[in-house]
Simulated scan of single mutants.
Amino acid sequence: MRLLSAGRRHRFAGVVVTLFALVVLGGTYAVIAPQQRAAADAAAQATQIEEGRKLFAVSCTSCHGLNAEGSKEAPSLIGVGAAAVDFQVGTGRMPAQQPGPQMPRKKVIFTDEEIAAIAAYVASLGPGPSVPAPEQYDPEGLSDADIAEGGELFRTNCTACHNVAGKGGALPWGKYAPKLGGVDPRHMYEAMLTGPQQMPVFSDEVMTPEEKKKLIGYVEEITTAPSQGGFDLGSLGPVTEGLATWLIGLAVLVLVAVWIAARGARVKK
């Protein structure tokens, strides 16, 4: 009887062994899986950077140099970050068709994947601003108070060049501030981060990410709102309004002069 008792297995022994095995397997997976995922991400990033290097060599080295060191025609790209590439290439400003005081926005020739690859390659050359996440620039969900605060920021920092209605304006030496209507919010955020061409840099220390989002929300509001006063004449202020008044007034004076002359000729007969 004692032998039978000694050889008899406890009824919960199988459950305990199973749980122990699961704990061991789970712990092993928890240790190995992140390492495998990190290795896979590193391999994917390396592949993307290599693809970007090839695209850069074909499309950008003639101006920016073989190693992005810059030249007389174009600046160095070492340290500009992925955000600068995403803005310039994503708006069609780069590659440039020809040298000039300013590169205009034009049709984009690269796909999103190719732009991301070039941005990854340039980012690998030196630290710089990264491409912002949607939650940083998407103005969806902002309150009226947030948009009003964005208006204050816009009037303080941007209207001197971009006009109070975001219609853009002329600058010295053939340069200009582009209009903001139809610009992707991501590209607006990147422009503030990187300061393309003559635009100043609004770092996170100068203007917080939340303030940038509010400013973008205000720009979206004013550039999509309908004109409540009829013809807006480009929303360029008193210059176009004065010109329109002068032309209309001159036309009226000419018609009056012609009418008086014609009436005087009939009276003399």
Rank of each mutant, 00 (worst) to 15 (best):
L193Q: 15
L255R: 04
A40H: 04
V24D: 03
H162L: 11
V89N: 04
K269G: 13
R37H: 09
H64F: 05
G242D: 15
Q228S: 13
V183A: 09
A145G: 06
E114H: 08
G195C: 09
T61K: 06
V183N: 06
V239E: 13
G242L: 11
I32H: 02
G26V: 03
R266C: 02
D184A: 15
N67D: 14
E114F: 02
S143Y: 04
Y218G: 03
P104T: 04
V122N: 05
G150Q: 08
L247R: 13
R9M: 09
F154K: 04
Q228D: 13
I109W: 03
K107G: 05
A170Y: 01
S5A: 14
L247N: 09
G14M: 05
K269R: 14
P127F: 05
A257E: 08
A116T: 06
V16W: 10
F56V: 07
M103Q: 13
T61L: 02
L19N: 08
R11T: 12
A21T: 11
E211F: 01
G264K: 11
A244R: 12
V254R: 00
P34L: 12
I222M: 14
P196M: 13
E210S: 12
Y29K: 01
P139F: 03
F110M: 06
K107P: 00
G52W: 01
A191T: 03
A96G: 05
L215C: 10
M188W: 01
G26W: 09
V164T: 14
T18C: 10
C158F: 10
V252Q: 09
Q48D: 05
V58T: 13
A38W: 01
T245L: 12
K269S: 13
V183Y: 00
M192I: 04
V31Y: 10
A261V: 08
S76A: 13
W246Y: 13
G126R: 04
Q136K: 15
N157T: 03
V24I: 13
